[in-house]
Write a protein that binds this DNA or RNA. Structure first.
Length: 344
DNA sequence: AAGCCGGGGCT
DNA sequence: AGCCCAGGCTT
């Protein structure tokens, strides 16, 4: 891009941002000097999460944990409860771990300092440090990738290519505002499916717009296949108080849920049920129903049995549960309601 | 470099 | 029901 074009690009985008930029709660405070805690929480929430959903969780999270000290002092179970339903729960566990560091050492003041915290990668470190420390570091996220791929007519932009272009374009006088501006453009105007090119402040400089087919940039990435997964779960208790286990490992790790056994490869579901009954010292299993739950890369089909056992129950509303477990518990609630209707 | 990790919206 | 979106960590 020519120097004159670069100046025009920055002016057009920042003027557009001043008029059409989104008014979001974590954007309060002086440009380049935002409250680091609020920016940080918002950026972690917005990883893989749309702004509309992030807003709900942001308010809830900030109400529950108003300061990094409050977050650091809380048990991780409470942090996961505030995150319940938002997905990618490692984000909450990493945020909590990092909060303990920050409560001791104070907030980082540089890109490198933020990058060193758990759960903070190159995108998030660039975002937080530019917004709260005035660091001259261009963000590289899905919006930036799409906007720049179209601007330059690049169908297969690599990570390094996007970063280099973004660093060249970044307005060194207003790095925070520039980062927000290009992301807002990607989120509201230069959208994946139906870009609003007539409303775009930089369409005159855009290769994809001039090509007449903006959506061919960037080319879609190949997606991993969805894996089928079968499981058997036990409901001991009811939809308000039940035996819950804390999951470990990567799948829903840290969350609570009904005791569960995966049905392995060639195995019959009865074998998994048998393992479950033995492990829980439970008896008299009765099939309550089957739930299905789809995640990005997994389709889970889970048979839910009600059974009896002496194990201690937990209050469901106090524990962080995935959508999968809420669906399983809903089987019980639906059953109670249908029985009530039958009796009356 | 490639695979894994939730959830919801849109068509 | 099937497609789309997407940053960080682990391997």
């Amino acid at each position: 891009m020519l120097p004159t074009d670069l100046a025009a690009f920055r002016t057009a985008l920042l003027n557009w941002f001043g008029a059409a930029g989104r008014d979001l709660p974590w954007r309060a405070g002086a440009e380049g000097a935002r409250d680091p805690y609020r920016v940080w929480v918002s950026e972690i929430l917005l990883q893989q999460t749309q702004v509309a959903r992030g807003l709900l969780y942001y308010e809830r999270f900030l109400t529950t944990f108003p300061t990094v000290q409050a977050l650091a002092a809380a048990p991780v179970e409470d942090v996961l409860k505030a995150w319940e339903g938002c997905g990618y729960y490692a984000r909450a566990r990493n945020l909590h771990r990092a909060a303990k560091q920050v409560a001791q050492q104070g907030f980082p003041t540089t890109y490198e300092g933020w990058l060193a915290l758990p759960g903070v990668g190159p995108y998030t470190a660039a975002a937080i440090s530019s917004l709260s420390c005035g660091e001259k570091r261009a963000v590289n996220d899905g919006n930036v990738r799409r906007v720049l791929a179209r601007l330059y007519g690049e169908k297969t932009p690599t990570e390094a290519w996007v970063q280099q272009r973004a660093d060249e374009l970044l307005d060194p006088d207003r790095p925070g505002a520039w980062n927000e501006a290009v992301m807002d453009l990607g989120a509201t105007t230069c959208t994946p499916k139906k870009p609003r090119c007539p409303e775009c402040p930089v369409s005159a400089l855009c290769t994809a717009f001039q090509s007449g087919e903006p959506t061919v940039y960037p080319a879609p990435k190949a997606r991993a296949a969805v894996k089928e997964l079968r499981a058997v779960a036990l409901l001991i208790g009811d939809d308000r108080e039940a035996v819950l286990e804390q999951r470990s490992g990567t799948l829903l790790g840290g969350l609570f849920g009904l005791p569960l056994e995966e049905v392995k490869g060639s195995e019959q579901p009865e074998a998994a049920l048998s393992r479950l009954l033995t492990r829980l010292h439970a008896q008299e299993p009765a099939l309550l129903g089957t739930v299905t739950h789809t995640m990005t890369h997994r389709h889970i089909r889970m048979d839910v049995y009600r059974a009896r056992a002496q194990s201690p129950r937990a209050r469901v509303q106090d524990a962080a549960l995935s959508r999968l477990d809420h669906k399983a518990l809903a089987l019980m609630k639906a059953r109670q309601e249908s029985l009530f209707n039958f009796d009356s």
